[in-house]
Design a protein around this nucleic acid. Structure first.
Lengths: 142, 142
DNA sequence: CTGCCACTTCAAGCCGACTTGAGGTCAAGC
DNA sequence: GCTTGACCTCAAGTCGGCTTGAAGTGGCAG
């Protein structure tokens, strides 16, 4: 079996060795053995790292990512938990879309005051939903 | 004119006073005057804060958010810059969608090995695009 | 006039996510 | 057998984004 040195994993994943060690420490990935001192990573780690990269891009903390895909790379969470995460992401996608549309809008709209503009108001609605949700999230903000 | 004390802004926006001071310091919002020592915020600040909240949720740094919507609340960037941001967000939305679908998939898929599964492969494609992009972002990671 | 209490400033602290640096190990090639 | 270079550990540092705490101020209700 060909295992990977940290350097190869780094080269193929784009994460720095220091980050990979940090992730291992944090339990997001794991090396299977040592060759001398050197960690030996199984090839699957590359897949895991792709998932981690996506999770990060999606704005999840390492802890949350670890919660989604256990150290085995595929999730060990109860289905309900995964569905809940997915639902949260739906909300986030809607928000992101609204913000994107808002950016496009203000880039184009020649209206003197955006506050009058229907597109801007649509944004406000979405933001409004958000502030309701925010209450739930507040504990996290603390 | 009724201006708002920081406490009212806090209550209505969900941001803590300390965060609001921090944002003012950072140039994201601004108070118009003082009543004694107390900052007086114009009501528009609530709109700005909604935009800030969305931007944060979208994973932008405060600096980036400040770049999108100048301290006046509506953007003062060149149109091209806004469009570019919007395009970046498109990419991010696609990724987020892929991750969400992946979560839903693994929650349902009874396949013994996900690596065999077409849905999982679709994810890998998106992640693949990502790693190309990652090169550009790498400077930031440094 | 006196509290009170919501505000103020400023410095320091904290958390997440890494990076950096010093000093050490060790398998492989010459 | 020796060197080399990629790895190792561990502690400390960095950066963004706030929070916390101490000490002070000042408008307004009683």
């Amino acid at each position: 079996m060909k295992f990977l040195d940290i350097g190869e994993v780094s080269a193929q994943s784009g994460f720095r060795p220091s980050a990979l060690r940090y992730y291992e420490e944090a339990g997001l990935i794991s090396s299977v053995s040592r060759h001398g001192l050197r960690r030996q990573f199984p090839p699957e780690v590359l897949l895991q790292l792709k998932l981690i990269a996506m999770g990060k891009l999606a704005g999840f903390s390492l802890e949350e990512i670890a919660g989604m895909f256990g150290r085995n790379g595929t999730p060990d969470l109860p289905r309900a938990g995964l569905h809940q995460k997915a639902n949260e992401m739906d909300r986030q996608i809607r928000e992101l879309t609204a913000l994107r549309d808002t950016l496009r809008h203000v880039a184009e709209c020649p209206a003197p005051s955006h506050i009058e503009c229907p597109t801007f108001k649509r944004l406000l609605e979405v933001a409004g939903q958000r502030s309701a949700v925010r209450k739930n999230i507040t504990g996290k903000q603390r």
